[in-house]
Design a binder for these strands. Structure first.
Lengths: 255, 255
DNA sequence: GTCCCAAGTTTCATATTATGGAACTCGCTT
DNA sequence: AAGCGAGTTCCATAATATGAAACTTGGGAC
């Protein structure tokens, strides 16, 4: 049985916040129905958040929405992460050289979290930013690159904790097959994601080892599959392995 | 006398979060001293946040820190704002043409909040991102551009509510002088910030009017003063006014 | 113009919940 | 092995959050 939250209101407050984040501006009744809470309770929660400037109420429509204070917190968190500073110029370069989107991720338990991204200027269609989003290690290019640097025991442990499921027809869900893939990543030095995570998207990734030989970060190049043919991949492979060395050297410098 | 927060824990929870955002990973005692709260109370708050994955405890050092879940919330908020999507290609272009950093801000009471920024590829020194941060209307280029589009009554009202203080030697703190500046912005169509907000930084800004003639957004080009001479400014002025028209046209299209 | 209804707001007695002092555990240092 | 600093757990108690109900407001409909 799942433990329960030690502070009831806290649970309710964050459900409220998550609800507003998901749906955008909402009315009081609407919110209280969605959250299954008494409207007085929701009203009090909202007032508390308004009091601290985390929520605004539109004077016209009287709908409630989240303020940009959350963005400020988010930036303070990202600013504390100096890996972003180190990697930024290199992933920018990689994005320009390839013309595709490049991501930087950080290990986080059984997941990887996107902490930075650079998209090439040409394809300036802005997708919703992934920063802050997490994806499972077992079914992503970056995840497999990170796993390949771990001991076999550790890999098995993470595999067992993960919720293994076919996200697309190409997702690998058999552990023996998975181990073979890990072996080839160790041999090649890079990992691939052939639509295992999202149909139509391929990606190539490498891990970044720190001075102790531990990998907590990885980078990837993602592209629609028609822009990432097998020959194109050879090109990307060379570029990403170069950048990996450069970033690792820089990391060493700053130890 | 200031009203008090209708939920005590809520206040305490967010103080905890803000404290962690400001200082980075902290120990329990350290936090409880900083917050003037009993360590049991802080411990319970942290456990509640950990339960919901907003906080992580480092298994090595047992220090507490914020997770990337806040970044995810932040991105959901920004994704709801379609002004960012509209303006993005244009401010990107402006950043490339000028080689300087371009910001997009949104009106927010007596402040303007940075909601997007693009920095030119060349000067890829990453400053801490401003997104989510707010600056007073009365002493920023973007703020004055927004104010210039309001009625004189409204301007006076905002002036009176603002905490007028000299942020630098150049900050204007006299209302009569300020009104003259507003008049010239109305005449010229753009506003300037000559180190009024931060020493050594100049900036030029324009407001963005929606189809009803109301301005809720503004853009600016910022640069160190030695890269923004008076003649350079003429050049920027032309470019930013062009982009203003283009964005406003795009806004009209999507009305 | 007035009636009505839906939506937000305020109040308050009550039960539930958060509180914090104290006791406990764990890992280092001396 | 004792002492210390740090995190963790427990529990009686006070204080707080709760939600039903009453109240207010504003925008149509007629």
């Amino acid at each position: 049985m799942e433990e329960k939250n030690p502070i009831q209101v806290s649970e309710r407050i964050f459900h409220t916040i998550e609800c507003l984040a998901k749906y955008g501006p909402m009315g009081l009744l609407e919110l209280s129905k969605e959250l299954n809470l008494n409207k007085s309770t929701v009203h009090r929660i909202l007032n508390s958040l308004i009091f601290m400037d985390y929520v605004k109420q539109d004077p016209e429509t009287s709908k409630y929405s989240l303020s940009f204070k959350f963005c400020h917190i988010s930036n303070q968190i990202l600013a504390q992460n100096n890996m972003i500073d180190i990697a930024r110029p290199y992933i920018k370069e990689l994005a320009e050289q390839t013309g595709e989107t490049v991501h930087l991720v950080q290990m986080d338990g059984i997941n990887a979290v996107y902490i930075d991204k650079v998209e090439a200027s040409k394809n300036s269609v802005r997708l919703v930013s992934m920063v802050g989003k997490s994806i499972p290690l077992y079914c992503s290019g970056v995840g497999k690159a990170l796993l390949a640097d771990m001991s076999d025991d550790k890999i098995q442990h993470i595999w067992e904790q993960s919720d293994i499921r076919k996200l697309t027809d190409y997702t690998v869900t058999d552990f023996d097959k998975f181990k073979k893939i890990i072996a080839s990543i160790r041999k090649d030095g890079y990992s691939l994601d052939n639509e295992e995570n999202e149909l139509g998207v391929r990606c190539i990734a490498v891990s970044l080892k720190d001075y102790r030989g531990k990998s907590h970060y990885a980078i990837s190049i993602s592209a629609p599959k028609d822009r990432m043919s097998d020959e194109q991949l050879k090109n990307f492979q060379k570029l990403i392995l170069q950048i990996k060395d450069q970033i690792q050297w820089e990391m060493g410098q700053r130890h």
